[in-house]
Design a protein around this nucleic acid. Structure first.
Length: 118
DNA sequence: CGAGTGACAGGAC
DNA sequence: TGTCCTGCCACTC
């Protein structure tokens, strides 16, 4: 069961995003245990933008862009980080058809979550 | 029109 | 107090 707080599970979910992929808020929320937490995901990421510990640059909205209004050091930094990992940008946003996590990735992430959670 | 989304804001416990 | 959840609502497809 959950031995950690919900916020920590959200971070853990973000950390399980495979390199070279991105995930949406809904997917992170689902991974954390409740798909209705999608609002809380953004909330919690904003409250703790410690991107050194949590690769929040791999978290984008459903369209594949960062919010635009706010990001750790600007949307530009997010793009550069992602490009370094192999995530290509198209017309200013991530090509979700290629870089959004798949169901396969999702299940791997769930297993990793269990390992961390116990 | 309905369904999905959200880097918010605020209420509930 | 902090953590969790949920509403609103404009926007997109």
């Amino acid at each position: 069961m959950s031995t950690v707080s919900l916020a920590e599970r959200i971070y853990a979910a973000v950390r399980t995003i495979p390199r070279g992929k991105v995930a949406t808020y809904s997917q992170i929320a689902a991974l954390a245990g409740n798909c209705n937490l999608r609002r809380y995901v953004g909330n919690v990421l904003h409250k703790n933008p410690d991107n050194s510990m949590t690769p929040c640059h791999r978290v984008v909205n459903a369209k594949g862009c960062c919010s635009g209004s706010f990001a750790f050091g600007g949307p530009r930094a997010q793009q550069e980080k992602l490009e370094t990992e192999g995530v290509a940008f198209t017309a200013g946003h991530v090509d979700m058809t290629r870089f959004c996590i798949t169901e396969d990735d999702f299940q791997c992430m769930e297993m990793e979550m269990e390992e961390h959670d116990g």
